[in-house]
Design a binder for these strands. Structure first.
Lengths: 372, 372
DNA sequence: CTCCAATGTGAGAACGATCTCAGATTGGGG
DNA sequence: CCCCAATCTGAGATCGTTCTCACATTGGAG
């Protein structure tokens, strides 16, 4: 074996494969594989020769070939609206941490809240033979493409939303309870006119039914729905009749209407004494508008927001918020996914469509005061 | 072919492969592949039969097998410190958008700024046969593991940092120019005592050399170094001798020392009239400390920050900042990576180690005022 | 009618790891 | 001395796709 001239190496020297290892160790491919796989019988001497060869060549098994043979890729998929969003990137980190522990990697796909992209993403991930998929589905009712994934034998966990009428596992925050608690807090401080401002998916808005006796929201579980439900429940518990004028559901793809919605609330004949903004976008819009207009928080009006973004602690007053634990939700979803992967095909011991609820927290800060 | 009983399907019916398609179309595997691949000759009739079979079976080619055969996986890797960081997640989005256009997917790996994790990540990505890697390397001097990637024939683009003495492409913001311009702006407003506060990698801090005639920073390119360089250059251009007391380089893994550094500046005998905080962490710490202490911005002191985070426009005063275009940088890195992948093996027309510089912008807002 | 190009098709060989199975070599008990 | 179990090893199949190559079958030109 002549040493190659250093300056002009072959541009693409392929990685050593198990045949190279076997040849160098003077054994057959099968024997090398047996040593590496730690199954069957191998003499001590052969074991050492193979390990030696592995070290000398810097052999690393090719995961593609391994996937080909075993069907397991050690890759999972994460399908979300937009990875640059703070919620998703934090969840992503949680997913990655669990995946790392499990020896897996994560492929991310963005949907921009477009159903066609979501369908495409699941197809692509399947063709990559991912071991499982974590998804924040756009539509909670139409989920044929997601069912197709489970039908192909690939585990799926739905994050932040729960699909209706499906056996798919989900990880969600207890938005309803946390919202109810937060609204209860406002009521406890004497507020009676509490506005609810919430971004909603235009295709599947919460169906508001404010009857004489009970107010409720129908439909499958997604954060906005649950928060509206929590709001209504808290009012109901305090015997306060919900006022339709105090509820603004703004399509999340029309950012301009957010500020308008806040403005409209302020101009009501009998304006609210507190605003509950049920997501980070509305919280930001409300805060911006109030500070532009020079309206004092919490002097003139109390503000209770959602999501613990950095800015809520840097502005004055610091904003009291309900926090969805995004990182933990990502972790939990991944844990659940790997549990499914582990018992793959095995009859699921418990009911299908296991629902993991992660507690949301209420962080009291300075933007809420007693009602005058 | 009997219809299977609907209720008790095989749990894992494997996806149809090209053999199934061929059989259904009544042709050989080779012919089916020829039709699908669009090469060689095929009669019109066979083409239609094959396409028909594809549609009926819902056939999707298995990318793993394709990778096995072709060596191309349509997957690229992104190695960063922490995907939940705003800079990286925005860059990630840029990378994903380009990848989508190119029909590729992205695997993310977090390093938490640990060299061992970074080495591990490159190994894993290679074993997944990724077509290329975008990486924000921790150390700009020790890059043996990255060279190993290029040696394996896999394209690499370094993001946000430039490796010293390597032929590796990089995409960086023109931190030096943008910083120099921002400092120039402060000088133009009459500031002479301008503090520089900057987080640095403890292993590779910028080597400050403040001589009598010239002040400069030695070493390879990374944002903190370049920003320090820009600072010194702007002072030098204005004939201002840099004061070592006005320069604080804080190890980025010791958050507590950030506030301290600001505090120390304020307590100087001859304190600065303006603070330039050269990254988002320092900017946040400085703003927090100043507002806690009740020091008026820009009345008592001017603040010029880095990175366009949401909060910088929500606080009062809104913070003037120099902005690194994270999304565009991700895009640019991906563009460059796919360019390399496309001309893979082909002799690179231009010099090795192409450096793409993305302009940083200076956003003037309300936190800077003329020096009294 | 012959021959060759153009057109169409299928058998089979990669890619790399894994694992079954059959065969080989021990050694110890009967 | 024989036989069987225990121990060890390698040949070869498999996963699904791609693509080369060899082998048909045309039709038209000579």
């Amino acid at each position: 074996m002549a040493t190659e001239p250093g300056s002009r190496e072959r541009p693409k020297r392929s990685r050593p494969n198990i045949n190279d290892v076997a040849k160098r160790a003077g054994v057959s491919r099968a024997t090398a594989s047996r040593v590496l796989g730690g199954y069957g019988y191998s003499s001590q001497e052969v074991i050492e020769r193979v390990n030696q060869a592995v070290r000398e060549l810097g052999y690393e098994p090719d995961r593609i070939a391994r996937t080909m043979r075993s069907g397991k890729s050690d890759v999972i998929g994460f399908v979300c609206a937009d990875i640059s969003d703070a919620f998703f990137s934090a969840a992503m980190r949680g997913i990655c941490d669990v995946a790392l522990r499990e020896g897996s990697q994560v492929i991310v796909m963005n949907t921009d809240d477009r159903a066609s992209q979501e369908r495409q993403a699941t197809k692509v991930l399947l063709s990559h033979k991912v071991d499982g998929i974590i998804i924040t589905p756009i539509a909670v009712r139409e989920h044929g493409h997601i069912d197709a994934v489970t039908r192909a034998g690939v585990p799926v966990v739905s994050l932040d939303r729960q699909l209706s009428d499906s056996g798919i596992d989900s990880v969600v925050a207890d938005n309803e309870a946390a919202t109810a608690a937060a609204i209860g807090h406002l009521i406890g401080l004497g507020h009676r006119r509490i506005a609810l401002l919430c971004s909603v998916q235009p295709e599947e808005p919460p169906a508001l039914r404010i009857g004489k006796v009970r107010a409720s929201v129908a439909g499958p579980s997604r954060p906005s729905h649950d928060r509206v439900r929590g709001y209504l429940r808290a009012l109901s518990a305090a015997g306060i009749h919900p006022d339709r004028d105090l509820i603004a559901l703004v399509p999340h793809d029309e950012p301009k209407r957010r500020m308008q919605a806040v403005q409209t609330m302020l101009e009501l004949e009998d304006p609210p004494t507190a605003l509950f903004t049920a997501d980070s976008y509305m919280t930001k819009s409300a805060f911006s508008l109030l500070s532009e207009r020079g309206i004092a928080i919490p002097g003139d009006i109390s503000l209770l927001g959602f999501d613990d973004l950095e800015w809520t602690t840097l502005v004055r007053p610091r904003i009291s918020v309900v926090v969805q634990p995004s990182y933990e939700m990502g972790r939990a979803a991944a844990e659940q996914l790997f549990a499914q992967i582990a018992r793959n095909g095995a009859p699921e011991a418990d009911a299908r469509g296991r629902r993991t609820v992660v507690p949301a927290r209420f962080l009291e800060r300075d933007s809420v005061a007693p009602s005058r």
